[in-house]
Design a protein around this nucleic acid. Structure first.
Length: 499
RNA sequence: GCCGCAUUCGUCUAGAGGCCUAGGACACCGCCCUCUCAAGGCGGAGAUCACCGGUUCGAAUCCGGUAUGCGGUACCA
């Protein structure tokens, strides 16, 4: 396979801190990580913060934190936001590498591989419009390549700051994409492009090539949106005398309408999913399968499983829609695979402080298989922290009444249950005991158990959907259960007397 | 417009010429279980493998064309 070249494998992720960690970036980072780890290679994090205003520190922090959250680790690069770089090829933030870029630009200028361009944005825009009107490919017309010394002097005198433009050789560029196979482009269609702005800051296409070379990157796995950019990069690589890494372009993650996943149409920040209570295990498993499969029917994979099994041969070529239903399903699987102790720990940040750690651990068995996301726990356990009044205020008396029964019936059942439960001591208030008593009572009265339990469920939790009734009662304790039953009884009789 | 890439159930996918009357999973529907809701079990529906034409005894799989979608075409990354 092509991926096992003699070169040591070095892969990288190169996020730009222009926003919080994006789902697409996370997936690309994951694939690179899996690839590097699978082959025992080195993984590098490079922050692409060329020419970005301040305020990016927060985004860098978000990106690094969330990559860590996903379980992705790297051998070189900043390990924490604003932290020191680790690794022999730093600095790993492009904002700290300006001198390198300037030197390489000067080298290209000296060799004739690039030239100064004095054209203003307005002039370029005008040319572009003309070309479009003439139905030509819009590309640089090469004016500044043919400038006379006098013209050049004139621009300098005007105080114009030249950009640096790369001279693209008009040749067909071919490369063997790790995922798509042989791809070829005609670079004569490209036109010379700018690599350094008039203000001296370098552009993406230029710095990415320099950094990948200087950081000895052997394999560049990136989104398919870069496929068309690759011939530019190869042209630059050749002009600079660099070694060509292997390129692989992975399919895009799509919005529901099949366009490239975007903030406008989808929830794209990893943090947002994290805040909803998705588990990193589920996220990783889900993301990995958006564009890759092991080639079998297995579908539950931990990060380590993925490292062991990941291969480029099974990476798809077509894009994949981000299907939240499937993420939900996987999240449930991973939630249920945790021990109660582990789940309690993960639930902690999602639950009110009023519930102590002990209480959280006790309620976990009741809600575990009812959780799609960790945040769902809030509503499920609310009855524990709500006051008796708050619970009573949540429901209408009609909710107490089982189908086919009257309010008077419900009151009777409630009263009967109250009496049976009141006989128990606080110490005997255990789910199995409670259930036994209530079932016996239902039978004695000739009620179906489910119907008999309904008014109690509503009275105790304030909701007609709740965790298992008797477990809930046990957690609440004798006094509060009786108080809530009494409150329900009062509501019912009050209603009856009004009727 | 030009260039490039892609195209199997609604979705994620298995599939590398005969094992495919196309398999799994999610979602959906039904039944079972059941104190509600879930979880779980069982079953159902759902894809003329984008289309057309080749190659071949045989094509979802190979070739060509078309269509559609997406991406790129910036002094964005």
């Amino acid at each position: 396979m092509t991926e096992t070249s003699e070169q040591p494998i070095r892969a990288r992720m190169a996020p730009s801190p222009t926003g919080p960690l994006h789902i697409g970036t996370a997936r690309t980072s994951l694939y690179n990580y899996l690839f590097a780890r699978h082959f025992g290679g080195t993984y590098v994090l490079r922050i692409e913060d060329t020419d970005l205003a301040r305020g990016t520190a927060d985004f860098e922090r978000d990106i690094i934190d969330n990559l860590h959250w996903l379980g992705i680790t790297w051998d070189e690069g900043p390990q924490v936001a604003e932290g020191e770089d680790i690794g022999p090829f730093g600095p790993y933030r492009q904002s700290n590498r300006s001198a390198l870029y300037a030197a390489e630009a000067a080298r290209l200028l000296a060799s004739g591989g690039a030239y100064h361009c004095w054209c203003t944005p307005q002039e370029l825009e005008a040319v572009r419009r003309e070309q479009e009107a003439a139905k030509e490919a819009p590309r640089y017309n090469g004016r500044c390549l043919r400038l006379t010394d006098a013209e050049r002097a004139q621009f300098v005198a005007e105080g114009r700051q030249p950009a640096i433009r790369f001279k693209v050789a008009p040749e067909v560029v071919r490369f063997d994409d790790l995922i798509r196979g042989e791809v070829e482009f005609d670079n004569s269609l490209l036109g010379d492009f700018i690599i350094v702005r008039g203000d001296g800051t370098p552009l993406y296409h230029f710095v990415v090539v320099i950094d990948d070379e200087k950081m000895r990157i052997s394999h560049v796995l990136r989104g398919e949106d870069h496929l068309s950019n690759t011939p530019k990069h190869i042209a630059l690589i050749r002009a600079l005398g660099y070694r060509e890494p292997q390129f692989g372009h992975i399919p895009l993650i799509l919005n529901a309408d099949r366009s490239k996943m975007s903030k406008r149409k989808s929830q794209t920040s990893v943090t947002a999913y994290r805040d909803e209570g998705y588990l990193p295990e589920a996220m990783v498993n889900f993301l990995a399968f958006l564009g890759w499969s092991p080639g079998t029917e297995e579908e539950i994979f931990t990060l380590d499983d993925l490292i062991a099994r990941f291969d480029l041969a099974h990476v798809h070529k077509g894009g994949a829609i981000f299907d939240k239903d499937r993420l939900d399903y996987l999240n449930g699987i991973y939630i249920r695979s945790l021990t109660d102790e582990q789940l309690a720990l993960r639930l902690r940040p999602f639950l009110p402080d009023g519930l102590d750690d002990e209480a959280v651990l006790r309620v976990v068995p009741l809600i575990k298989e009812r959780l799609v996301k960790l945040a769902d726990a809030r509503e499920l356990v609310a009855f524990l922290t709500e006051t008796d009044d708050e619970v009573a205020a949540r429901y209408d008396v009609a909710a107490l009444v089982p189908k086919g029964r009257s309010l008077a019936d419900a009151a009777t059942a409630l009263q009967a249950a109250r009496e049976v439960l009141a006989e128990l001591t606080a110490a005997d208030f255990a789910a199995d005991v409670l259930e036994g008593r209530c079932r016996a009572e239902a039978e004695r009265l000739g009620w179906k158990a489910g119907d008999f339990f309904r008014p109690q469920r509503v009275a105790i939790t304030g909701r007609s959907v709740s965790p298992p009734l008797f477990g809930s009662m046990e957690l609440l304790g004798r006094d509060r259960v009786l108080a809530r039953l009494d409150a329900a009884l009062r509501k019912a009789t009050l209603q009856e007397s009004l009727a």
